[in-house]
Amino acid sequence: MPTRILVVEDSILISSALQILLESGGYEVSVAETAGDAVKAGLALPPDVVLLDLTLPDADGLTVLAQLRSGGVTPVLKLAMTGHDDNSTRDRCIAAGCDEVLVKPVPARELLRIIGERLT
């Protein structure tokens, strides 16, 4: 069964780029544009990896992780994406259970490498 990745990102420009990138790596990708949709999608079909933007129209991206967890879903790999490269954002993501914090634009090769390494 292919590895399932849930991309949570409100900009379709960015999510479509990530989708092409991840699909080129052989992953099965679904996209949610809001925290609400992400929780629904994640509970219906639990992903192996969640790639999460921190700023979503309806909530802080990190709330998605907590809601999935309380619904019994914990992806193997939880990656946060942010435009702010600072320690306080990093600390907040790690405290919320993220495995890695990636600064946008997420480097293409780096993203595939992280997912490849962490899932083997």
Binding site: S11, I14, A17, L18, L21, P105
Partner: peptide, 17 residues
């Protein structure tokens, strides 16, 4: 936002994906 998408697309092409 659009600039982020442009860079990601360009990297996809650069890396031969």
């Amino acid at each position: 936002t659009p600039l982020t998408a442009i860079i990601t697309h360009a990297e996809i092409l650069r890396d031969g994906l």
